[in-house]
Design a protein around this nucleic acid. Sequence first.
DNA 1: TCTATTCGTCATGGCAGAAAACAAATTAGT
DNA 2: ACTAATTTGTTTTCTGCCATGACGAATAGA
Lengths: 404, 404
Amino acid sequence: MPTALPAGSSGPASQQGMRRQNLALVLSTVAGSGPLSRADVAGRVGLTRAAVSSLVDELLGAGLLVEGETAPNGRVGRPGRALSLNDRGPAGLGLEVGPAHLGACVVDLAGQTRVWRRVPAINRSRPAEQVLADLAEAAASATEEAQALGLRIEGTVLAVPGVLGPGAPGAASVSVEHAPNLGWHGVSPARHWPAGLPAPELENEANLGALAELWSGGESADTLVHVSAETGIGAALVIGGHLFRGAAGYAGELGHVPVHSDGPRCSCGAHGCLEQYAGARAVLHAARIAGSDQDPVAALADRARAGHAPTLAALRRAGEAFGIALTAAVNLVDPAAVVLGGAYSELAEWLLPAMAAELALRVRVRPWDPDALRASRLGRRGPLLGAAHLTIQRIVNDPARLWD
Amino acid sequence: MPTALPAGSSGPASQQGMRRQNLALVLSTVAGSGPLSRADVAGRVGLTRAAVSSLVDELLGAGLLVEGETAPNGRVGRPGRALSLNDRGPAGLGLEVGPAHLGACVVDLAGQTRVWRRVPAINRSRPAEQVLADLAEAAASATEEAQALGLRIEGTVLAVPGVLGPGAPGAASVSVEHAPNLGWHGVSPARHWPAGLPAPELENEANLGALAELWSGGESADTLVHVSAETGIGAALVIGGHLFRGAAGYAGELGHVPVHSDGPRCSCGAHGCLEQYAGARAVLHAARIAGSDQDPVAALADRARAGHAPTLAALRRAGEAFGIALTAAVNLVDPAAVVLGGAYSELAEWLLPAMAAELALRVRVRPWDPDALRASRLGRRGPLLGAAHLTIQRIVNDPARLWD
DNA sequence: TCTATTCGTCATGGCAGAAAACAAATTAGT
DNA sequence: ACTAATTTGTTTTCTGCCATGACGAATAGA
């Protein structure tokens, strides 16, 4: 009998765990609701002022919170001292490898982007070792810049445009099983990482994009379907504010949802998958654009902007196919929002109308808010931001991890 | 920023909450792993023997656990005293209303069915008040029988074959918004319930069937898609051992996943929904079986058993449609198991082969285990069992709810 | 200046689990 | 038969955490 425990931690509840949870509660309250006094926090979370004081002392000592000057606020009584997240404390480093660029970014505890770097690089045709060496250099330089701002990197996450090998999430031994756009197969970044730098944790790019949308995209819903498309089409499912990976880690394979059950054969072996209608290769072909070295999405956007009729038609058809596949997703998962992110967010202008029309036509068994479908506010920046934010979120949700 | 807290309880962690959690931990450990001594429990959960002793004393006092006699077990050292769930303690009462029957059942803390009743009744053509009066009588008589067995009903749950109105789950004010098979619209069972009996909590029949499969169907996976079909087709999504209802409570609408995007118009307004191919009405029509008063699923099973060719073909076609819709579900949700439950589990013999074939053909982008698809082991008994089990699960997961 | 009010801290107490010692019940060995 | 070893369950002492209530500090209003 798989007894579903109340939540999370499987171990026994201990006083240390209680302290831990309350530290997280105080820190995330300050993170969520701007500067607050101790008394404010106590009122919100249901602890006494004394308990909050003790917790805040610990967080101040660890450099996670900073105390502002006391300032009269117009109300009667002794004014409180404002507590805010320390913007000279721990930070998260995000890294990204694309076919034609490298990225590094640092986000502070308050969620502000403090270092942002994105440099062109020809990665597809170079050996992975060289690419990783360049990436490590970018990481080192971003770390230096962050240190100059008073920040301390507490975690490094690399956004990977591909499938990860098995292994505990967070373990440095995890490898990139397959990243077609990079030409990587079985590459283990940790092995080619310089000794001085902490090796990055690997996470799928699309997943990070979804989390970024949730954390810094101004998304209010905590259950959403985040579509990331380029050559392959994937959807990250966020459920209750957490990434849902499925029983075996394969959740969100939107690209292989059947759209026309007797359609053309897909590379996966099935017939009529969404990817055959809306994948970059299929759309390029339908738009009669010859293969070039250019970024396929940029090529499509250029032609569409120029009014190229076959491209416009191809994008409309792709949008319709998206609509059919997303109808399945909406009917099954019932998300509060469907976000078109990744590279395709740059095609939103042409894709969204057909997607919205199909969804409105097909999602009828329950109320469907047309505004629930929208393009990502972060676009291509999502994965890199998400990679840096991941470390921050972990600290906010469990600050004690930093010192024990 | 929707800060995803570690889990569940939003309030601060207190010593009482710690106690509460450890009580649940001890109880669910005993529930999950048969009779155990205090020392055994301590070893498993990571508490000291002293702490477990104190927790067990409380659970014994509350009548949730019972202590067996001490019996030599062949190993060296003082033998432990076996702790088991009390089968003369708290119990859950499940109720069910179908078009042609009423059901009541009592499950004890150990998960054993102690009272089981299912009586034919013509409910479709009678006013809801009369049906509810009969149901209340059945509930009262089942309660009496349970009391004779030394059981104490601690919760009553009614399985409803339809859509519930809004309201806090568990609130007695919730109404049945729409139950087509019963002809109920806006019926509030609590209003027509006798004063002496505790009013039942309402829950959707399909959801309860899925939970029953999880808890007493021998299901080892904790992430599964449970298909419940009859006139309408729904899927309950169980994720991490918990029922997933979606952002607005509409998750699992498998019946309206598009199968052939340009297919016949569905009652929902869309085209080519699964229900148009695999709903009872559609299959009856395709099998050329004239509408009768009989249970449609039983009628189909009868004809199929008799080798009626149009019925066999219709069921095969329905299975193929199921396979297409379930491909979408598997690719999106990545469940560890797909279970065909509800009334259609009686058609599994004819539906499953086509479903399995389509899934094997279409789920190609990831490994797919053919054994992950199976018929429910509980069949039509699922919802009623789940209704009774729901109360038991709640007690096991938080025993303190009984006394404070 | 004095009072009411609110904030942060301090001292005390209660509660829950950890640690260690102890009594009880059994097996293994001589 | 008797002792040693081992395991169980309880008792006692200790530590850590939060609640309670009291106190000084800082502000607005009279």
